[in-house]
Design a protein around this nucleic acid. Sequence first.
DNA 1: TAATTAATTAGATGAATATCGAATTAATTT
DNA 2: AAATTAATTCGATATTCATCTAATTAATTA
Lengths: 190, 190
Amino acid sequence: MDDSQLLDFFKALADASRLKIIGLLAQESFTVEQLAAMLKLRPSTVSHHLARLSKAGLVSARAEGYYNLYRLETSKLETIARRMLSREALPAIAADVDLEAYDRKVLTDFSNPDGSLKTIPAQRKKLTVILCHIAKSFEPEVRYPEKEVNQILARFHQDTATLRRELVGAGLLERQRGEYWKVQGSGNRV
Amino acid sequence: MDDSQLLDFFKALADASRLKIIGLLAQESFTVEQLAAMLKLRPSTVSHHLARLSKAGLVSARAEGYYNLYRLETSKLETIARRMLSREALPAIAADVDLEAYDRKVLTDFSNPDGSLKTIPAQRKKLTVILCHIAKSFEPEVRYPEKEVNQILARFHQDTATLRRELVGAGLLERQRGEYWKVQGSGNRV
DNA sequence: TAATTAATTAGATGAATATCGAATTAATTT
DNA sequence: AAATTAATTCGATATTCATCTAATTAATTA
């Protein structure tokens, strides 16, 4: 569900002392003093670690006299573990990432202000991005004679023959008897 | 199994950028450049993150041309998740921790060099530690008359009556008809 | 072969944080 | 009420590390 809560969880466990605390509390509840003696740390340090673990929902405290008895919240551990195993939860972490950023970068890197291409990319990966972009200039369901195709491609680069060949090779344009048309559903991603 | 490998795992995921990388690779393989563009980071930074993830066994690279295509190692994720869910794996994290350190600390805090007690602890938790220690001075299977019990207890503290009463109250010593004997299996932990 | 390009490595810098000692708070014992 | 005690909080310090730029390596294209 939550984005930063997962990060807090991993940050909480990304420390040798805190990991040991989790291991100890998995066996039995302990007070701050006991943990400090076993880990050979100052109580203030252990208190700090427990606060972090508590903020991540991994431990909870129960006051007993003037002791504070800490216990492990196994449910939290289980929740996260199950999330790591689920197929959908992982991609959700990157939900707010801009997936098209790379394509845009390639496009601006190779385009002049007027929209024409500086050069035709040599790398397959970049060429594909450019070709997908060019394909958007073709209407679906329309059949273009070669002369019109060249007119459109000339807006991008003088070497229309190469562009035409690559568009067909990439499966973005189809050709038959001197006529061309856009392949359905080839508007966007690779 | 391994101790520091688990720590490496959590450290690897304890960063917002790396967590996003995992989320992205969960959908599809990407090159360093693509990830850099999507995350708005320099390729060198992404490379550094991928190295960390790789060291933790979370991703692997496949050379393709002069691209490096990174993919997620879901098996590693599954292994750790299952370990988090298992009852035995968690306590194993603290296998090398000195569990008796607290008891030893209490013992030295309250003992004089000759082994006698400075005072009898007021806190239940500490009193129990001391009582367990004293109980070790009694042989199993042996019945002690009260006079002998007092002789042994006097080595620890003059207030033998209190010690005797507490030992019985804690269930470490049993009494019947003026004779005392050690309760089986009460030698050590609380 | 020379120029370009993806990726990694090295070095530098600033931010986060693990740990400690001291001060404070709250509960217990005398 | 005064003294003791467990725990937390605060301030300081040293370390770890995320990120950047620059340099280097390795592969591809011209």
